Computed example of a mutant assay.
Amino acid sequence: MNNKSKESLLKIKWQEINGWKVAFILLATILIGASLVVMTRLTQERENFSELIEQQPVLTGEPLLAIRSQKAQINKIVAIYLEDLQKEAKKEEQNYQFVLKNEALISGEFDLLGFPLRFYLYLDPFVMDDGNVQLKAKSLSVGALNLPITQVLRMIAKTPELPKWIEVKPKEETIVLRLDQFEIGNGLYLKAEKINLVEDEIEFSLYLAETSTSTKKSEE
């Protein structure tokens, strides 16, 4: 074998070795990259729970003030609140009324084939463990019509000016008043303690909310 044939043979073998090296490096890179992508997807949080927790008020310690009220006082406050809400929505008439009697009553109007119909939805209030208030629907009156409660609750839920702290659950036939999302001002929040409409006893506690970040700073 002459020198030229030897050089060409070595050149071919060297090219084959380099080709295998390149292929191996590419394969290893692909495998490593795929592993990193899978690990990133597995460890990635769908939601930033730390930020969500910080957004929720933390009501701890002793309340600043214990508030005892009656149905007549609550009705006046709610009427003023709804009136202001309707003004912000730029509507001349108030669509809904909320009154406490021996049970909670929501009254409102809706159009059926061009005719206004008024409904009366009766609910029982319950104080939840977190200090929020649940209104459980018990009966509905719409003139001579027999409409399901879920249908009326769906209509209420679609109200554009409905505040975010009022959560309507048509399937469960309940309305939740999320007092922990209703800020009075200056970081003050309410927690319901007792609601007894028959005995006319309504009690709330006033708290100053602390976020987790402010709590950490005070501890440091």
Rank of each mutant, 00 (worst) to 15 (best):
V78C: 02
K76V: 10
E51S: 06
Q70R: 12
V78W: 00
K164N: 04
V38T: 13
K87R: 11
E51I: 12
L140F: 12
Y120G: 09
R46T: 08
A104C: 08
G61L: 04
P125N: 07
I175A: 01
A137F: 00
S107G: 14
I74Q: 01
L147N: 00
L117R: 01
G143E: 06
L36K: 05
P160Y: 04
I74A: 03
K138N: 09
P57A: 06
S50R: 15
I30G: 06
N95S: 14
A157C: 09
R154Q: 12
L52S: 09
E167T: 10
M39T: 09
V99W: 02
D124V: 15
P116G: 06
R68Q: 10
A34E: 11
R46W: 04
A72D: 10
I175L: 03
K138H: 14
W165C: 05
R68G: 11
K164V: 15
N48F: 05
N95R: 15
Q86E: 10
P116K: 00
W165V: 13
E93K: 12
L112T: 11
P116Q: 03
G33K: 01
S107D: 04
I67M: 10
K101M: 00
A34C: 14
G61D: 07
N75G: 03
V142T: 03
I32L: 09
N102F: 08
G131C: 07
Q73H: 08
E161C: 05
F49P: 15
L135C: 11
